[in-house]
Design a protein around this nucleic acid. Structure first.
Length: 250
DNA sequence: GCGACAG
DNA sequence: ATCTTGTCGC
């Protein structure tokens, strides 16, 4: 393809700017204000897994877990064909369409299972233009969303420097956090030590219809291992699906 | 040339 | 995202 990426990225930037106006960065649900999240019964997770040499065909996964037990009560795997390339800062344009499709199918076939909050693999507000995957999916689905990234995106002055490494070392137990502060002093997310056994933190940021404090508290309460259980199950199951139906990829 | 580059 | 098993430690 000859021209596009540069032009496409410009369009994508304005789309993000437009959708940003619909973002809600505060708690909107009653359960979010409860100390033990009383009233929260279903949390969702989504993920995409790929076949090694193929960046178009992927397995899209949606799982619903009950809360606080965190047992899977619904899961769907579906092969999808991705048309957009992965461009850092624009992950949502590649992954959101199939994820929305899974949510729409759920709405049509088992609306009573619709999750009350979604966990997303990647960032929300902690993003170059403060509109990452979790914001994008949140706005288009109008569901509360939390972004949890496994790797630090270096944005707006936040970097993996000595200070950052030092703060990581200072987190001694599960639940410990430190803020991700931009060069302009804005807190766009929190690094969280999600389990006692993992030294490497996860990076939590607001997606939609939830406050940062609630997002961090909820993420901590959904972690049995380093990655929040909804996202972890989505990842495990989508990869299992590929192993089963495309043995060539394993 | 070196480092960054969510997934 | 994916390429990759066993292995060291508790």
């Amino acid at each position: 393809m000859w021209a596009p990426e540069e032009e496409m990225v410009k369009e994508w930037e304005s789309e993000q700017e437009c959708m940003k106006q619909r973002l809600v960065l505060q708690d909107t649900e009653a359960w979010q204000k409860e100390p033990d999240f009383r009233g929260l019964e279903r949390v969702g997770g989504v993920d995409l897994s790929f076949i090694k040499g193929d960046d178009h065909n992927a397995c899209a996964q949606l799982v619903i877990l009950n809360y606080p037990e965190l047992q899977v009560v619904y899961d769907v795997s579906e092969m999808v064909f991705l048309t957009s390339p992965y461009v850092s800062g624009f992950l949502a344009f590649r992954e959101v369409p199939p994820l929305l499709q899974l949510l729409h199918t759920l709405q049509r076939e088992q609306p009573e299972l619709m999750p009350q909050v979604m966990f997303v693999d990647g960032n929300g507000l902690f993003h170059y233009r403060e509109f990452g995957l979790a914001c994008h999916l949140g706005v288009l689905s109008d569901l509360p969303c939390v972004g949890v990234a496994k790797n630090l995106l270096q944005v707006q002055g936040v970097a993996k420097n000595d200070e950052h490494m030092s703060q990581i070392s200072a987190m001694s137990k599960a639940g410990d956090t430190f803020p991700l502060v931009t060069d302009s002093g804005k807190i766009l997310g929190q690094a969280l030590r999600s389990s006692d056994r993992s030294t490497k933190p996860v990076y939590v940021s607001v997606g939609h219809r939830i406050s940062l404090d609630t997002a961090v508290r909820l993420t901590h309460s959904c972690c049995r291992y380093r990655v929040p259980e909804p996202t972890r199950q989505a990842d495990l199951r989508s990869r299992e699906y590929l192993r089963r139906y495309f043995p060539s990829s394993s």
